[in-house]
């Protein structure tokens, strides 16, 4: 068991990105330079063949719905955009560090699922930035990763304490002093992601408290989180729906037929995730 301050010190270290490789880090720094060209960023990524091939693989994966095959890092950067590239590099690098831990693959599948649903909902609502919404979905549980990195056995103890009445964030708070929403928000702000990405991470379990400006995106990710859980791609330790789906759909002005269509689309994506999520992990 940790106090909030004890665990905060641990994640403070992580906010400086020590967990990613030097080449990832250089690419990160370069992406924040407004003067940087895609060619320059591409060259940095190409210095790490593993990173380069993974980025191309992600851009070509069925999880990014674009046509045509990408053959180079530069094309992958153009297809994914810098913000999504940053998110993909970060997420996959961090997940790599905890790959062998029980429950991590399910977390990866859940993150992919929420990302795909969030993108679909954003597209349905004709929002101008579906890629950022998808990124928020991919990163929404990023705050769980430090638990596995710093004290996997405490995390497993917390997970295996199967009390269906207690959601994951309540157990996390007891075990680590901080829940995954607080941690995720702290990290993504430190990593300088925009508020459209950070706000859903902080508020996806409580959209009503989110800042007005980002509330629609928060609601989308919150709804995506619940839909993934309802169709079996939630968290194994708490496989239940614990939010108000009806309220979220009403707040997003989604009609009954639209909801059914979104759910049906997700069920196709669910098959894809179950069959292909190994491709990028």
């Amino acid at each position: 068991m940790y106090s909030r301050d004890e665990f905060f010190l641990l994640i403070e270290d992580l906010s400086l990105l020590p967990a990613i490789s030097p080449s990832c880090r250089s690419a990160f720094d370069k992406m924040e330079d407004p003067e940087a060209s895609l060619i320059g960023i591409g060259h940095l990524i190409e210095e790490d063949p593993g990173l380069a091939s993974r980025l191309i693989k992600v851009a070509n994966s069925p999880f990014y719905p674009y046509s045509g095959k990408v053959g180079s890092v530069r094309e992958a950067l153009v297809r994914l955009g810098l913000e999504t590239t940053r998110g993909v590099i970060l997420t996959t690098s961090l997940f790599d560090r905890i790959r062998g831990e029980a429950g991590v693959y399910a977390l990866w599948q859940h993150s992919l699922a929420v990302s795909m649903i969030s993108r679909n909902i954003a597209g349905h609502l004709r929002m101008p930035y579906p890629d950022e919404v998808a990124l928020a979905g991919l990163l929404h549980d990023i705050g769980k990763i430090p638990y596995f990195m710093h004290d996997a056995s405490e995390m497993h103890r917390s997970i295996s304490d199967v009390d269906p009445g207690r959601p994951d964030y309540k157990r996390e708070k007891e075990a680590f002093g901080m829940d995954h929403m607080e941690i995720g928000e702290h990290l993504t702000i430190s990593w300088r992601f925009p508020s459209i990405v950070c706000a859903p991470i902080r508020w996806h379990h409580n959209p009503a408290k989110s800042p007005e400006a980002d509330r629609t995106v928060v609601r989308i990710v919150a709804l995506g989180d619940l839909i993934a859980s309802a169709y079996g791609l939630g968290h194994p330790e708490f496989p239940f729906v614990d939010g108000d789906i009806l309220q979220l759909t009403e707040e997003l002005n989604l009609l009954g037929a639209e909801v059914t269509s979104l759910l049906t689309d997700f069920l196709y994506d669910r098959d894809l995730i179950v069959q292909r999520s190994h491709d990028v992990f």
Binding site: A230, D242, T260, L263, T264, Y268
Partner: peptide, 28 residues
């Protein structure tokens, strides 16, 4: 699906949502 929704209160709205999820699966 019903099991995953079982932690919610047994209200008409929640029953409706469960049916929407089941119906979507049947359509799929």
């Amino acid at each position: 699906i019903r099991k995953r929704f079982s932690r919610l209160q047994d209200t008409p709205d929640n029953k409706r949502i469960v049916e929407i999820f089941i119906r979507a699966f049947e359509v799929f």
